[in-house]
């Protein structure tokens, strides 16, 4: 295979793979201490793409995951990871109730919402996420929280997503946001 052909094949493959994934910018977070535990409130530009709504309405379950990483910010040295935490939600349409069911997979609570706008509104603002016990932190040091959020279509393999190349943004990757744990 010639180099030109190899490059072309690689570009086509990247385009096919990236075609199924969207990207959302913006968002922010803040942390506070309550009863010796650091909690965070998150604001995200959570928007469901048309293909994601179609997928939901068809019976596909979407997974919304928030990955937190608490980092000890050190001068002149590489930052040190203190811990990681994931908060996951599943979103699906219950065809029987006609409502979008959001399940917090960490604690099992379920919420039923009547429209995708309500889903967007619900997941755009997530409050009271327990992050870390203050006993393991040093008050003299600087800690930051790095959060990466993503939406993925569950039960649909990457292979099928690649073959659904005409569908844009079945998965969404949010921009990484970072804030200081202690202000």
């Amino acid at each position: 295979m010639s180099k030109k052909l190899q490059y072309s094949a690689t570009i086509v493959l990247i385009l096919l793979l990236s075609g199924t994934q969207g990207f959302a910018k913006g968002g922010g977070g803040k942390s506070y201490v309550r009863d010796g535990v650091y909690y965070s409130d998150i604001q995200l530009p959570f928007r469901l793409e048309q293909q994601q709504i179609e997928a939901l309405d068809s019976g596909v379950t979407l997974s919304f995951q928030l990955d937190f990483s608490i980092v000890d910010v050190r001068s002149w040295r590489i930052d040190r990871d203190i811990g990681t935490l994931s908060q996951a939600y599943s979103i699906r349409l219950n065809a029987f109730t006609g409502r979008y069911s959001i399940t917090n997979l960490n604690i099992g609570t379920k919420f039923a919402l009547s429209s995708t706008q309500e889903v967007e509104s619900f997941l755009s603002e997530i409050k009271n996420i327990p992050l870390v016990d203050d006993s393991i932190l040093d008050i003299e040091r600087n800690y930051s929280v790095i959060m990466q959020a993503s939406i993925t279509a569950e039960g649909i393999s990457q292979w099928i997503k690649t073959l659904s190349f005409w569908r844009q943004n079945l998965d969404t990757e949010f921009e990484t946001i970072e804030w200081m744990l202690l202000d």
Binding site: I160, L163, S164
Partner: peptide
């Protein structure tokens, strides 16, 4: 019964949603 109907409906909907890529997959 409601759960069973809903599950079947969701499964059916998901397969319908993936019908074309599944066809592509088999054809490929």
């Amino acid at each position: 019964m409601a759960y069973s109907v809903e599950e079947t409906y969701a499964r059916y909907g998901m397969l319908s949603f993936m019908k074309t890529p599944i066809q592509y997959s088999y054809a490929l």
